[in-house]
Design a binder for these strands. Structure first.
Length: 939
DNA sequence: AAGAAAAAAAAA
């Protein structure tokens, strides 16, 4: 470390110009907040964040990356935070405020954004303060770049080889330059001129940038600046120490209001964490017995087990053990969908409430979180809350312990809460080359990251998960992965990515194969031992599953044979009672089958003198509210609670798309499904006799075993036996392979979980499964590879390559649309509205509720109620459908001002004077919102 | 030509 800091220790230098401002927006006319004050505020905030908020484990990681002690790292970070806006001392920036002309400074052409100026100027100025500019990882470059990135995007290094580099870059030796140097000197002096580090690791620099941004966001709040202004501003440089002192006094309260604390470790046994579980099951016992001994620092835990084996509780317990061992006691639970995230939020908050005696913050993170009634801020309190029992997440008492500050509800800040639950996308955005990704990475760094249902990720998303694990391993963040079915190679790839980030050598011993069901624990600390559960896991006894392929013609306009096949499977149900689900591949097929089965079952019931079965239809193309209602209904009638309460129908048939594959807790006596890849079929079969082990259901006599009938084509050798649309949903290679696999297993019941891994691995690896179409397998592999490389391209580079240059973390020489957490998601949300003969538009067919065209809030803004009324009727359609019909589908112009409404499009239905309804014709498609079927599309 | 489900998008 160097110590040649050229600053006079006698006090801050004279001549600082307090009319140079740092903040003016939102302040009263003519009032501007001096830059020097803002810089010291940010330094004070960074200091407090480091002291009171950053996790002990993150302290270590950053200090290690700066090759110094935790204390010295803190001094450096507060110093750097105090320099972040130094680029505002330019004619370009100061001239922005037209109300105050600049006096005594030369004009300049120079118009670079102030963050860019910081990056350039500091690169030249820091060496005078002892920052090395040569070597493998010159700290000068790293610090300049990380401060230049405080708006969320990094700038490229400039080459500064000329003898007068600053002049060459457009910073001549003028009054501006004098002020920049004075500010730099004053801030450095006031913050104790810490010695420059010898080297800086890029991943640590990324986290430090996150801290600087967090500090800047905190002290840029108008309420805080207002308080600082009210306390009086410094008049001379001699007043600056007092300003810093005042900022230091105020900042802890600022962190408190924002909800930024440090979660306390949760300690105790499994039974203490889950008092409602009398006897932990095999998985939970195994982890409780072995994990505490294995965890001596950070690591990765992968758990593979079928649904219903208590994986969530096991993960929450493991997170306590692993978080404590790694000094990161926060928690992020990531799920594949918004619906599953909502459910998990309730479970996790209930658990945390039991585990935390002191108030803590928990956020729910996804695009529609604000619609969740359990996730309200203190401001919009539900009036009925007082009557709720204290255990209900909506109750006042509950919220006192699980609180969310307004600040944490702001964009991109939710991961700074102690605990968070949300979509996997929210975690993946930390690993995307998108703006402010370092803010998210910092949020994750202080937590144990749990990713539930990893199997739900496609190859694009898996590439992003892999890169994220790479970084989390490097940053020593504990990770827990949960999966129902996972190809063994995928499991290995994920573990390797984490360990590689943690520094594992390529030639290290191979990762042992994961047994199913089972768990693997990989230590992030050298020599990176990997442990597989020592004894086989005891699992819930399940009856073997009969997987029965039923071959029938699936192509062509005539569906008689197909309809009849389904009817034959369901005949006994109609006659004797029972519940079944039929899963079709496309929405149109589900609508068609629903229609046919409803007609037939009514007829057949009449003929046999029984009650017709209740019919349900579920797919994504229903208005949101209706979809939710149907879902609730199904779970209520066919779920675990229906049986004991007498809610289970005598007979019922649910027709659905793959939408019921995830997150719907129902139990059917029989399932019929279109052909799909085996891991998805197994996932679906999880709803067959799901609650059998609880012994709460009386099965009809015809249902002697859990049975999944798979509707498959006659032939297994050619693609044209499959309906054309299917190939866009599942690769034909996987469908034909699965079909052959099913034929092989047709007379042999599938034991769950024992046979699952063999089936899942076999579908991909067995060379005999698709002998006639080698080109098809190649095509699938090529497609997978393409998706994977698209994911890798959208992701930040691996931590090793980021160590020398942060630019690649956020550069935008790739298309914005390519930087997404999901690939090819071209979805538009539409609302079906109804236009009467006068051209008035309504939200309902009965013309009783108007389409909101003007906002009812003060400045024409739309109220939550109005937004909710529209969004609750919205449904997703492929964007392509609306492509050439912008005008026809255009929403009211006033919607463009609302971030929630501006993306919504309209499907205008005309209502005639006689009440007849006509849906819109968009190009070759006629659409109509059918009250029973959802959005029907006719070609 | 044709299509499950899934998420997100404003910061100082």
């Amino acid at each position: 470390m160097r110590n040649n800091v050229p600053v006079d220790a006698a006090g801050p230098p004279e001549g600082i110009d307090f009319s140079l401002w740092g903040k003016s927006e939102g302040l009263p006319p003519g009032v501007r907040y001096p830059l020097a004050c803002h810089l010291l505020d940010a330094a004070a905030a960074a200091e407090a964040l480091w002291r009171d908020h950053v996790s002990p484990g993150v302290h270590e990681t950053i200090a290690h990356g700066l090759d110094t002690t935790v204390d010295h790292a803190g001094t450096l970070i507060r110093h750097w935070a105090g320099l972040h806006d130094i680029g505002k001392i330019t004619h370009g920036f100061q001239g922005q405020d037209a109300t105050a002309p600049i006096r005594g400074y030369p004009a300049a052409e120079h118009r670079k954004a102030h963050d860019h100026v910081a990056a350039e100027w500091l690169q030249c100025a820091l060496p005078e303060y002892g920052y090395p500019k040569d070597g493998r990882r010159p700290p000068t470059l790293m610090v300049a770049q990380l401060l230049g990135g405080h708006h969320g995007r990094f700038h490229q290094h400039v080459s500064v080889s000329s003898s007068a580099p600053l002049r060459a870059l457009g910073y001549p030796d003028d009054a501006w330059e004098t002020q920049r140097r004075l500010h730099l000197a004053a801030v450095t002096e006031l913050l104790g001129h810490p010695a420059a580090p010898d080297q800086i690791d890029g991943t640590a620099a990324a986290l430090v940038c996150g801290v600087v941004i967090q500090a800047d966001w905190l002290v840029s709040q108008l309420s805080f600046i207002g308080r600082q202004l009210a306390g009086g501003l410094p008049a001379t440089p001699g007043d600056l120490p007092r300003h810093l002192h005042r900022a230091r006094e105020k900042v802890p309260a600022l962190l408190g209001e924002a909800g930024l604390g440090r979660p306390a470790p949760r300690t105790g046994s499994f039974t203490a964490a889950f008092p409602s579980i009398d006897t932990p099951n095999g998985l939970q016992r195994s982890l409780a017995e072995h994990l505490p001994r294995l965890c001596e620092g950070p690591g990765l835990l992968l758990v593979t087990a079928p649904m219903g084996e208590g994986k969530t509780e096991a993960a929450l317990y493991a997170a306590e053990v692993m978080g404590r061992a790694a000094g990161r006691c926060g928690l992020y639970v990531a799920l594949p969908t918004m619906a599953t995230a909502d459910q998990m939020f309730t479970r996790v908050t209930t658990y945390l409430r039991r585990r935390n005696a002191t108030p803590s913050t928990t956020t729910l993170l996804h695009g529609m979180a604000w619609l969740n009634p359990h996730y309200l801020s203190q401001q919009d309190t539900a009036p009925a809350e007082e009557q709720l029992p204290p255990d209900n997440p909506g109750s006042a008492e509950f919220r006192r312990l699980v609180e969310v500050s307004e600040w944490l509800r702001g964009r991109k800040r939710g991961l700074f809460a102690d605990y968070a639950v949300g979509t996997i996308d929210q975690a993946l955005m930390a690993a995307l080359r998108s703006r402010h990704n370092v803010v998210r990475m910092l949020g994750l760094a202080g937590k144990t990251v749990v990713i539930d249902e990893v199997h739900a990720a496609d190859s694009y998303m898996l590439a992003l998960v892999t890169r994220l694990l790479n970084w989390l391993g490097r940053l020593q963040v504990p990770v827990i992965l949960l999966s129902a079915t996972l190809h063994h190679r995928t499991a290995r790839t994920l573990i390797e990515a984490y360990l590689k980030g943690a520094g594992r050598r390529r030639n290290a011993a191979p990762i042992p194969t994961v047994a199913y069901p089972g768990w693997v624990y990989a230590s992030a600390q050298s020599p990176h031992p990997v442990t597989v559960n020592p004894e086989p896991l005891e699992t819930t006894q399940r009856k073997p599953l009969a997987l029965h392929p039923r071959e029938v013609s699936l192509t062509g306009d005539d569906t008689t044979a197909l309809d009849r096949a389904i009817q034959e499977e369901l005949a006994k149900l109609v006659e004797q009672g029972g519940c079944a689900a039929v899963i079709r591949t496309t929405v149109a097929e589900a609508q068609h089958t629903f229609h046919r089965i409803a007609e037939w079952s009514a007829r057949h019931a009449r003929a046999t003198g029984t009650e017709p079965p209740e019919m349900y239809l579920l797919h994504a193309r229903f208005p949101a509210q209706q979809r939710e209602r149907v879902t609730e209904d199904i779970v209520h009638r066919l779920g675990a609670n229906g049986a004991p309460n007498g809610q289970r129908p005598r007979s019922a048939i649910l027709v659905a798309t793959a939408i019921i594959e995830q997150s719907i807790d129902i139990d059917v006596d029989l399932m019929v499904s279109d052909l799909a890849p085996i891991h998805l079929l197994l996932q679906r079969s999880g709803r067959c006799w799901r609650h059998e082990h609880r012994g709460i259901l009386a099965r009809p006599a015809w249902a002697t075993e859990p049975r999944l009938v798979v509707l498959a084509p006659h032939r297994t050798d050619a693609e044209d036996a499959l309906p054309r649309g299917w190939s866009h949903i599942h690769h034909p290679s996987l469908l034909l392979r699965t079909h052959n696999l099913l034929r092989r297993w047709a007379n042999q019941p599938v034991r769950v979980p024992e046979d699952v891994q063999e089936l899942v691995d076999g579908m991909i690896d067995d060379t005999d499964l698709n002998p006639d179409n080698p080109h098809q397998d190649l095509d699938r592999e090529a497609t997978d590879l393409a998706y994977r490389s698209l994911g890798e391209n959208a992701a930040i580079p691996p931590p090793g390559r980021a160590t020398r240059d942060l630019y690649r973390l956020t550069d935008h020489d790739i298309d914005e649309a390519q930087v997404a957490t999901r690939f090819g998601a071209d979805t538009t949300r539409v609302v079906c509205c109804y236009s009467d003969s006068h051209g008035h538009r309504w939200l309902d067919e009965a013309l009783s509720e108007e389409l909101p065209e003007t906002g009812e809030l003060a400045h024409g803004g739309f109220s939550t109620g109005q937004v909710r009324a529209v969004l609750s009727r919205s449904l997703p359609v492929p964007g392509r459908w609306l492509e050439d019909h912008a005008e026809q589908a255009a929403p009211p112009e006033t919607w463009l001002t609302s971030p929630h409404l501006c993306q919504i499009r309209l499907l205008v239905h005309r209502v005639g004077p006689d009440g007849s309804v006509h849906g819109p014709q968009l190009g070759g498609r006629r659409m109509y919102l059918d009250p029973r079927l959802g959005l029907v599309v006719e070609p």
